[in-house]
Design a protein around this nucleic acid. Structure first.
Lengths: 141, 141
DNA sequence: CTTGCTGCAAATAGTTTGCAAGCTG
DNA sequence: CAGCTTGCAAACTATTTGCAGCAAG
């Protein structure tokens, strides 16, 4: 849970003006679990900052993405955009029943993929990062 | 390039009525390369079938997805839906510059992933299929 | 025949844009 | 103070829905 000052600094470092709105939006992104939509961020921010508008949320998220603070991801059915606050490389488990998306980190898997593609290589393509999408069902146990 | 009869049969097997529109739409999907949008399918179908409407294309694509003939995929920036006519498991190369998505099949990779996850296993998740999203840049060579 | 499919148009959902006014550096 | 940012509302784009008529099984 970073302090407002830390958030302001993150924005400044990224070359963005640290407005109240952006600080609030960035804070919301650090609070919300998973991959929130613009709407979800808006609803999180709004109560404490009734002046922030949805349009501003969209613009702020866009500038965050441009600055590399955030990653844009498509949601499972492609109707809306989601924003992934975790910019480190990671993978996703997708439940076929609930459409739920769970983050999955696995350095061992990362290494495996790195090695595999280092050995193999591509014709006309320079790989940069790998993200594995694992579809399946969540088992209650 | 399957014949109309084959397409009709595919539809029947999938439990769908083989209407002229659906046959034309399915044919277009087999013709178009990559992962077309509804709009692209419409433009492909329209010249030969001026009576087909965009709404019908959407409905037909939905029913194809429900029947398992097609897979819905989100396009890179998540603003529109694309339909992937290839229902066998495969991976994607995504070019950061052009947003182009290239299909990538690699049985060896599939085996590697299978083995890795068979050995590892998950807590509360039953994996079913794996799709690797490889981001990078296309090198002209 | 009867049930599902089509075509049209209107309705929605999500996101973007234009611009005057405000705040940040 | 200069310029980026905001808030609002209107504009857009992609997709969905309702419903009367049509066609496939």
């Amino acid at each position: 849970m970073p302090s407002p000052e830390q958030l302001r600094e993150q924005l400044a470092t990224a070359g963005l003006r640290a407005t109240q709105q952006r600080v609030a939006i960035l804070a919301a992104l650090r609070t919300l679990p998973g991959h929130p939509t613009a709407e979800q961020v808006f609803r999180q921010v709004r109560p404490a900052n009734p002046t922030v508008s949805l349009g501003t949320v969209y613009k702020a998220l866009d500038s965050f993405v441009a600055a590399g603070l955030l990653r844009r991801v498509a949601d499972a059915d492609g109707t809306r955009r989601r924003y992934d606050p975790d910019c480190t490389n990671h993978h996703h488990l997708v439940c076929q029943n609930t459409q739920e998306i769970i983050d999955y980190c696995d350095p061992q898997l990362d290494r495996l993929l790195q090695e595999f593609f280092a050995a193999r290589g591509f014709e006309n393509f320079q790989p940069h990062s790998y993200s594995l999408h694992i579809t399946g069902v969540r088992s209650e146990a």
